[in-house]
Design a protein around this nucleic acid. Structure first.
Length: 367
DNA sequence: TTGATTTGACCAAA
DNA sequence: TTTGGTCAAATCAA
């Protein structure tokens, strides 16, 4: 079944890609037709696999699946087929993993270690549960101080080689149409902080960290690099879990979580797999793609080289100028807003137009 | 004006 | 000593 789900996600991804590139393809009916055919083929195949009436809730495999899931939920068992389903489904796994992380944080704050997924019978295990239950970098490094030129102790710097940090590497196909330079989009907003030529690699490696790193001390980072032997594939290495949507006011379902997931198995078996824009099935109860943000961000990001914002969403993080202040209540509110929608066109803009946080920081500094 | 990206330099792990 | 990872000034863009 997971194969089928993956196929569906692929189909969604193709459709999303088409949506992204629609402006570019508007004058290229042939390419448009090809894209449409590809999508049609994908879903046709799925339909065949499901047996012509797959979503007839009253019969067939869909019903079986529903029944299975229902019974598992009722049983409340952890080591169930539901769990298997959750684990085998890329997106569901993403939610599971992100939620585990969320649950850890919530637990840390409230003492309650049970998260929403646990309530569903999911067990907290998997690649992201570390011994001790803590995130490796939940205590974010202090990036605000100028340690370099001030001559302060270099030991304060938290540099880690790859071998030290927990890494999750996935491979994501680059867009073949439109702007292929766009790094894979994954539902989070990232800020590029460096790029480096890597020995033995034809393509430079881009270094990104969570846009909300400062505000939420979010330690999530990622490195994006094209494969030497396949320039149409990005290798994305994630490090650290997102903590930027884990406030106590956060909704029970976290935003698209791919950053903290290991989709390698999916990617390995899914050559067409989506751009990292985490598969966001429309049938999920929460529309993460609010405003088309998640799905359309790659396009919104200015596409090719309009340079600006090329992978970052709205900036809510502090700038290079100020030290990051803590505003728990505002942060919680902001959290809720982030979580309620996408991470790109985020709704904070409607509420706090124009960098409210920075202004507050400046005010804070004056005090 | 503000925030993101670029890029050279710095630093520490290997 | 080499190389990967990060910093932050300079620059760009909206």
């Amino acid at each position: 079944m997971d194969d089928t789900i993956n196929l569906i996600l692929q189909g969604c991804s193709l459709a999303r890609d088409l949506e992204h590139n629609l402006p570019n393809l508007a004058n290229q009916p042939n390419l448009l037709a090809l894209s449409c055919e590809e999508i049609i083929r994908a879903f046709s195949f799925i339909r065949e696999r499901l047996g012509h009436n797959p979503l007839d809730a009253g019969s067939g495999r869909y019903r079986e699946m529903q029944e299975m899931r229902q019974s598992e939920v009722q049983a409340g068992s952890g080591g169930s087929n539901l769990e298997e389903w959750l684990k085998s489904s890329g997106y569901a796994q993403s939610i599971l993993q992100q939620t585990q992380c969320w649950a850890r944080m919530s637990g840390a704050r409230t003492g309650n270690t049970e998260g929403p997924m646990e309530a569903m019978g999911a067990v907290a295990e998997g690649p992201f549960v570390r011994p001790g239950g803590g995130g490796e970098e939940m205590q974010a490094p202090d990036v605000s101080s100028d340690r370099r030129r001030s001559g302060s102790s270099s030991s304060e710097r938290t540099r880690r080689r790859n071998s030290d940090a927990e890494r999750r590497t996935i491979r994501v196909p680059a867009p073949r149409m439109g702007n292929t330079e766009i790094p894979p989009e994954d539902g989070y907003t990232w800020r590029k902080y460096g790029q480096k030529e890597i020995l033995g690699s034809k393509f430079p490696r881009g270094y990104y960290r969570c846009t909300h790193q400062k505000l939420y001390h979010c330690p999530a980072k990622k490195q994006v690099q094209r494969l030497d032997n396949d320039p149409f594939t990005f290798e994305v290495m994630y490090r650290g879990d997102h903590t930027c949507h884990m406030s106590s006011t956060a909704p029970s379902i976290p935003p698209p979580p791919p950053a903290s997931l290991d989709m390698a198995p999916i990617a390995a078996t899914q050559p067409i797999s989506a751009s990292v824009s985490a598969p966001l099935p429309r049938w999920l109860p929460v529309d993460f793609g609010m405003g088309g943000a998640s799905g359309s961000r790659n396009m919104a990001v200015g596409g090719s080289g309009s340079g600006r914002g090329s992978e970052a969403g709205p900036s809510t993080s502090g700038s290079r100028r100020g030290k990051e202040a803590e505003y728990p209540l505002v942060a919680d509110l902001a959290d809720a807003m982030f979580n309620s929608g996408s991470s790109s066109t985020n709704s904070m803009d409607f509420i706090f137009p124009s960098s409210t946080e920075d202004k507050r920081e400046e005010d804070d500094k004056k005090d």
